[in-house]
């Protein structure tokens, strides 16, 4: 087990290293950030001074090594555009994204799990089939189109909810949150709904599939034969058994939403991390993009690692060896 964890750790570090190199080169390959930052009328001397200050005059491998050296000391560099540390810039956006994803995922679970149970218990009934067809629709709507339609319906046509932006925030333990003000929550609803719909569909499908399968298992059959009430079977046995995969998937989705809710944040002008990523890419703000993707990869690697270890702990059939069977 320890050997396995060590091995995975080394592999993860290698992945991080590879990600940093590829992203570094990728942004380098798109274009020269100086062309976007410095207006063309600036004198050659001033431009050269700026290039030197940002270290862009060095060969790319030297730039990368100095980045790596600083990163090991915990310094991911300064944003070209904002002039402040990249990590701080990203982390300052974390609360906004986090509360959005939190609301979206809990909403998805609160609605998705009961619907999934309903559909899974009577898979051939009319409502169940409607629910399952609905999940297909939920998967099929492209995020940007759905977001705009939500705005058109709830903000423009009905005038119930604000169109974009974060609204009023209050400070809680030094972190800005909009979950505690009415205005903030009103601003949260539409983007959270936009994120929640496909996840709701995912939850319904997971729970429905799990329930249908569980109902055919021997333990359920025995319980039924013993005359245990249906409610109790579902509540005590079925639900408990299907929750493990649901929680796992929800956890992984949570991670990927925190890292890449880019489209929703763009459509709703939500000042979160995804919006920052896309703005930074468009401005060739390399320190921010590199720091961002590295942090995101760290998140994924950690989540995958935890999932594998958890599975091993929960399911004795999974062996954790170097071969990862």
């Amino acid at each position: 087990m320890t050997a396995y964890i060590l091995q995975r750790l080394i592999q993860s570090v290698l992945v991080l290293l590879a990600v940093s190199i590829v992203v570094f080169l990728a942004v380098y390959g798109i274009g020269d950030p100086i062309e976007l930052l410095v207006p063309p009328q600036v004198s050659a001397a001033e431009r050269a001074a700026m290039i030197r200050r940002l270290g862009l005059d060095l060969p790319v491998w030297q730039q990368y090594l100095s980045f790596l050296g600083n990163a090991l000391k915990g310094d991911l560099g300064r944003s070209f555009v904002h002039g402040v540390p990249a990590a701080g810039l990203i982390l300052a956006r974390l609360p906004a994204t986090f509360e959005l994803v939190l609301l979206a995922m809990s909403g998805a679970a609160l609605i998705g799990v009961p619907l999934g149970l309903l559909a899974g218990l009577n898979p051939e009934s009319r409502p169940s089939r409607a629910i399952m067809a609905g999940t297909i629709l939920g998967f099929s709507l492209p995020s940007f189109w759905k977001g705009m339609m939500l705005v058109l319906l709830f903000s423009v046509a009905l005038g119930w909810l604000p169109t974009a932006g974060r609204g009023e925030t209050v400070s809680l333990f030094g972190i800005q949150t909009s979950l505690l003000t009415l205005d903030g929550i009103r601003h949260l609803i539409l983007p959270a709904l936009n994120l929640a719909i496909p996840n709701m569909a995912l939850m319904v499908r997971l729970v429905a599939a799990g329930t249908t399968e569980a109902m055919t298992q021997d333990y359920v059959k025995y319980a039924r034969a013993k005359g245990v009430r249906r409610k109790r079977i579902v509540g005590r046995h079925v639900l408990r058994n299907i929750l493990i995969p649901v929680v796992t998937v929800a956890g992984m989705e949570f991670g990927s939403l925190v890292a890449f809710s880019t489209i929703t944040e763009t459509v709703f002008a939500w000042p979160g991390m995804g919006k920052l990523l896309i703005d930074s890419i468009y401005h060739l703000d390399r320190p921010v993009v590199v720091a961002y993707v590295m942090l995101a990869t760290l998140l994924f690697v950690a989540v995958n690692f935890l999932v594998d270890v958890l599975y091993a702990a929960l399911d004795p059939r999974v062996k954790l060896t170097g071969e990862m069977a």
């Binding site: 992945v15 990600v19 590829v22 990728a26 798109i30 274009g31 890419i281 993707v293 990869t297």
Partner: peptide, 24 residues
């Protein structure tokens, strides 16, 4: 291990960045 770590890597990589790099 190598292939699966590359997979991890790709899944964490923003697709817009891939598209932009190719365009450029």
């Amino acid at each position: 291990a190598a292939i699966m770590r590359v997979v991890d890597f790709m899944l964490g990589f923003p697709s817009i960045l891939i598209a932009l790099v190719l365009l450029a």
